[in-house]
Design a binder for these strands. Structure first.
Lengths: 217, 217
DNA sequence: TCACAAGTGGAGGACACTCCTCAACTTCGG
DNA sequence: CCGAAGTTGAGGAGTGTCCTCCACTTGTGA
């Protein structure tokens, strides 16, 4: 019986593994999930083969590279729920999320729904969705958020803002705040928005929006 | 001397030419300027060689295919300038532009600045820019538009909205109106937007945003 | 009618990019 | 010091784009 023992890695191998994970964080942050494992290997200064040996699929690497980061994201959203008013909570959540997505394309791709099939991503999102809903509900309850905005609008709003952030990186990295502000101001408005997107619609749209996240295998 | 006479096309060649232009309109409308001449040829039911013989560069084809359409776009903007109030003009301009960009990705790519080097596109934009400025100025003058929004914001707003339009095509083609509405509501707001983008910044950003429009040659 | 200029088609070369394997080689550590 | 563990990156296979070229077809004017 060829026991599949998890023997500890040799010292040099362990070092390489860490280098790979670190490189992955950087590369995915700047290029999004579309970055190739070749990119990561080059950035880490190891051969491509080494990356494939350690992480046979992109998803496995993403999981290790993004675990902490996403965990912290979730905690920040929880913190927004504890803001004095619902409106403050909503604004600080949106701002924080936009900042995060602007800084780290990888987090954006995962949080906003790239590759909706990947098990790991799905788990993360299962944790985040209810928090977002709570934030929206709270703002609705206190009457500060227009009634016709739903939790399903959040991915769209963040998508729009992070698109601006992404494309303005080289020119004016912080300009996305301007357009986020404009949208936030709009959230107080009172014109007729028509029927909102349903959850499945949001998912379909998201899937289409983020081709950056179509890992192989 | 090999006179380069413009002899009239043979009857069949003329027909093919028209087919190609018509196919180009359809293909570029749905796929944006990223569509290949091969796509156009297939769609037109002619060989690739025929397309290249008639239109050696993509730009030449675009010029013929989009001339009318862009001309009409410009006229619609002029019409918005004649609306009773500056605000009406602004809203109807934004709405019309968003609708147009949602329907025709090609027009969007050209109007918003894809391939800023191409001479032909540049001429079109030279005509449109002042009109947009006039619309913004008029709304500013009557005080209905917040003072810190500039003409440079217009491409960004339209970019955001048309991104939504593009990615929601299959799901809810008209949902972009919702997010346009949200942004328009924000245009009445009064929070601090910070320093706006300058024209060169808008150009750089646009160039980066529309990879769909990097014609070859 | 028919010769020949005009026009056509699309296989295929050239290039770019991605994913991933594997066999020859290097290094660690008992 | 030697064998297992680890590394490497060229290269095969796949996808996709741009564009040329030439054998073939078709329209038309004499």
């Amino acid at each position: 019986m060829p026991e599949e023992i998890d023997r500890p890695l040799r010292r040099d191998a362990q070092l390489n593994r860490e280098r790979i994970v670190e490189a992955a964080r950087e590369v995915f942050a700047t290029r999004g999930l579309a970055a190739t494992l070749d990119d990561v290997a080059t950035h880490a200064g190891v051969g491509i083969g080494t990356v494939y040996r350690r992480f046979p699929t992109k998803e496995q690497l993403l999981e290790v590279a993004f675990e902490e980061r996403l965990e912290q994201h979730a905690r920040e959203i929880e913190a927004a729920l504890r803001k004095p008013t619902g409106w403050d909570g909503l604004v600080s959540f949106l701002t924080r999320a936009a900042e995060l997505h602007a800084t780290d394309r990888g987090v954006r791709d995962i949080a906003l729904g790239a590759d909706l099939d990947a098990r790991y991503f799905e788990i993360i999102r299962q944790r985040i969705y209810p928090l977002v809903e709570a934030i929206i509900d709270r703002a609705h309850a206190e009457g500060s958020l227009r009634a016709d905005v739903t939790a399903g609008d959040v991915p769209l709003l963040l998508m729009m803002v992070s698109e601006v952030a992404h494309h303005s990186q080289a020119v004016r990295p912080e300009i996305f705040h301007r357009y986020l502000r404009l949208l936030i101001d709009g959230l107080r408005g009172d014109s007729d928005l028509g029927p909102p997107l349903t959850r499945p619609e949001v998912d379909a749209l998201t899937r289409d929006w983020l081709p950056s996240g179509k890992p192989q295998r």
